[in-house]
Nucleic acid binder design. Structure first.
Lengths: 225, 225, 225, 225
DNA sequence: AATGAATGAGCATTCATTCAT
DNA sequence: TATGAATGAATGCTCATTCAT
């Protein structure tokens, strides 16, 4: 299959280059020349650079979404009352995140891409991800809500993003941090080791005491949330 | 002051555009035309786009560094044994971070820039920041070390970065998150409110129980750390 | 042949403009607009301005080299002892130099270009020419050596360059000189007429008596040469 | 004298840079920054880059012209019949050419500049030189005419330029050629040594037998010349 | 299904020059 | 007399995209 070959050569090359240098700094020439395909092939097969970027994400997120839904199905089946303990939820998510790219041997690349998706201007990408994968995230969020009934909704919302920041920031900057860690602490950190370190921190963050209430409009709002 | 005016018009415009769209997506033409300044003025006053980027950072980081050093001096004077409680350290940092851009009314911009500094490829920027501001960060790190003697060095290193990820990710993506929060929780979040929410989470993260030891080479290393 | 057409339109235009105004004074915009070709076409087909300059030279020098090697093969076959008379060598070179651009009706341009190659800073060009065409020049030099066994090597080296200076200087400045000559001597000089005038002068220059020896280190060196 | 200092600093720097890289490749920024004077100083003191180029030449050619006129006065006084032997004329010119820059220790630079004057497009420069120094060249030419009465005028015109080509080409490319000579013939060539080598060659060139007459229009023209 | 050629828009940078002080 | 700031024009080059084949 000449076509399939070209398409996946482009995707393979693009994801590496995007992860290394970002979207704007990676030109179609960079990608096509490194992938040894024709310059016009990207536009031919994907339509535009934007569509290529989205395709790169879909190749990770589609299998992730599918697996995560299955895993959550299984969990929900196990817990008849629909309340899955937080640790279990986080564990399941971590396992799924690790499983998908593990097959492609590039968790690092996946995380860099996720980081880029948040930090680079690419509005189209944010919209694409939200539209395509909002559902699974909403399902996860709802399960977290049931697992942490004591948390005000707004608080839970922010804490989830605090934790998301920790994970994406750490894993997407993995290489640089790993270098420093290796130099200063003679440590060769693996992703699995990092996940081991992350677990208690994430749990503690989610379970931290509530911040002191403050006066003013926020008071009412937080209550309402 | 013709010069000062042009220079600061460029800096003011550049920092906003950089924060909005990233470095690569912001052209000198964007900046100079919005600042109503001659296209060549950037090269005249700064020498290159790279130098402009660094100047934008310096305008935030130079006063920050100065104030932070002063604040730490004061703290160290207060605690004769050289051990400053972790909460106090974090509080001082938060206060200083808030104080500097507050004058310029643009913490959001500053945080976006910090986020970009980490996520965009711009190697020159990382090098510049490390060279110019590595000292103050090292001083802070050392004080944290004294405040958390029970933490293995490597663990502390990673937790600091976990927390850094939380802060930068949240604050640099503030606008998008605020929009969602406003829609879902009828909440108008201010930066100060966010800092209030961050405090207990950060403390809990730093104080989380240690992860279970694992076998293999890491065992010895972690011990040593 | 769309490609061939664009490429040769660029080359045709570039060689004329380069010859008229030099390399630095000829912009890619000059070339592409006069050639009625897209500005990006030069970079597409040649990669850079430097590469275009080299391509302009190659279009003359490649056929020249080929023909000159053939002509020298023939000459060597004719003279069994490997010693070709100087006049014959010079004649052959002149004939070949005249033959190549004659087909393109632009000896003047070729000579201007050669002159530029020597006088303009373009280090890359000198390197390119030396690397690509050093062989044929070395072969010619060696044959001249056999034809003038009485000349010390160093003396021959310098005389060849004296003569080269005469030829390039005269032919590359042909237009200006021709104008003066026409005004002062009512003469319409053709290139062939100039070559006719050059012949006895060049031969006399090569056969001039040796300069008086001088004392000092040069004495021994010249002897050795 | 601050002004005088600035002016001569500019001239000193400009002549070196022009000689090294040509006119177009040398920017006013190059000159003023290396000369450590203000960027606007060139336009202030000379009016334009063109005027600076001409000033650089004048600083060499004015004293040369003056000395050469003196030397020719002396020669003409010595030869009552107004016929000065060719060797003597050439010797006098060589001596004067060597004398002027010798004071400034930069014959090489002077020759590079002369070479550039001929080869670079700078029409204004050719016009300037012709206007300012045409007289002395005409006087010299006339004396050469009397010294070589047997040469047809057109032939003499061309031979003078042949010889000029030899001298300018060799001396202006001196550095490159010297390097080759040094490598191949273990010879450290000085300018004086080169002049010694040039003398017999130039004389032989001027005295070479006339080229064979040819038929056609040129015949009549040459006769007439 | 794929590609070589071409294109127009845009890029950062450098230029000689001008001008207010 | 001298200069820092500013400017408009131009430079070589790269970009994503289109199109005929």
């Amino acid at each position: 299959m000449a076509q399939s070959d070209t398409v996946s050569r482009i995707l393979d090359t693009a994801e590496v280059l995007f992860a290394e240098r970002g979207f704007a700094e990676t030109s179609l020439r960079n990608i096509t020349s490194k992938a040894r395909v024709n310059l016009a092939a990207v536009n031919y097969h994907f339509g535009s650079k934007k569509a290529l970027i989205q395709a790169v994400f879909s190749r990770y997120l589609d299998p992730f979404t599918q697996r995560f839904h299955s895993a959550l199905d299984e969990l929900e089946a196990r817990y008849a009352d629909g309340v899955i303990p937080l640790e279990e939820l986080l564990e399941t998510m971590a396992t799924t995140v690790l499983a998908v790219p593990a097959e492609r041997n590039s968790l690092k690349v996946f995380m860099r891409l996720l980081g880029l998706a948040y930090s680079q201007a690419q509005g189209h990408l944010r919209r694409h991800i939200q539209a395509q994968y909002g559902d699974v995230f909403a399902r996860f969020t709802e399960l977290v809500r049931r697992a942490t009934p004591e948390l005000p909704d707004a608080e839970r919302f922010w804490r989830l993003h605090f934790v998301l920041g920790t994970v994406i920031f750490t894993l997407s900057g993995l290489d640089a941090l790993r270098d420093i860690a290796a130099k200063d602490y003679h440590e060769q950190v693996t992703v699995r080791d990092l996940v081991r370190r992350l677990r208690p921190v994430v749990v503690a963050a989610m379970n931290a005491p509530l911040p002191p209430e403050i006066e003013g409009e926020l008071h009412a709002n937080t209550r309402a949330g």
